[in-house]
Design a protein around this nucleic acid. Structure first.
Length: 213
DNA sequence: ATATCGATTATCT
DNA sequence: GATAATCGATATG
């Protein structure tokens, strides 16, 4: 059964995250985010990410040094850094670089694989999930995917996503993107021209304008 | 199809 | 007191 497939797959190890942020960002494309609560499994393929460098990146939360908010970015690799933004939304990142060095990858969009009904429920969406437009609205955007996976700062910040027992983790099912596209990051004002957004080229679940029919 | 705008709060100046 | 790594609703072409 498909849920069992992602439920038992090996987690991506800590060493994967303990490298430079750009490399980790590119290689995270195609990996699978899993939320497992007992028998209830949600899984989605990572199709869009952004790299936030350490203290040398004005757009990064870590730019001004370690604070109570951003300490996870400075800690060990492979931890979830969750921040709350615009009074409305949580966003999910993974800490990268070796312990003590800042850096993180923002997860911007997922292709839903398993547990779409659970995602729709978490999002408060009632619609026909056989329609691409409805499936897209589940997880195409950082705030949306966090809501779809019930990700909050209180629940998930600093959580180790490399552990098989973690209810929030990242696994590798062997999928590799054919082609990766690189663009500037979305929604920032500082360092807005840096090419640090990475997407699975042609994937319909990348955030932004919907594909027309 | 694109543009504009309000919501709502943790964080930092 | 201003801002923010966003979203969804509404308005307009």
């Amino acid at each position: 059964m498909l849920t069992a497939k992602y439920g038992h797959m090996r987690a991506v190890p800590r060493d994967f995250y303990g490298r430079d942020v750009v490399t980790v960002s590119r290689e995270l494309l195609g990996k699978v985010l899993v939320r497992q609560e007992g028998r209830r499994v949600r899984a989605g393929r990572i199709v869009e990410v952004e790299a936030y460098l350490g203290i040398d990146d004005p757009a990064a939360h870590s730019a001004a040094g370690k604070t109570a908010r951003n300490f996870v970015l400075f800690g060990p690799p492979g931890r979830a850094y969750i921040y709350f933004i615009y009074g409305n939304h949580y966003c999910l990142n993974f800490s990268c670089e070796p312990d003590g060095k800042a850096g993180g990858v923002l997860i911007r969009a997922l292709e839903p694989l398993v547990g779409l009904e659970l995602m729709a429920e978490a999002r408060g969406i009632e619609g026909d999930l056989t329609k691409l437009s409805q499936r897209r609205s589940l997880t195409s955007g950082p705030g949306r995917l966090a809501e779809a996976f019930d990700i909050t700062r209180e629940r998930d910040n600093d959580k180790n996503v490399t552990l098989a027992k973690s209810d929030l983790r990242v696994v590798d099912d062997g999928f590799r993107p054919e082609k990766i596209a690189v663009t500037p990051r979305i929604g920032i004002t500082k360092a807005a021209d840096e090419q640090l957004r990475f997407v699975v080229a042609g994937n319909a679940f990348v955030s932004g304008k919907a594909f027309s029919r």
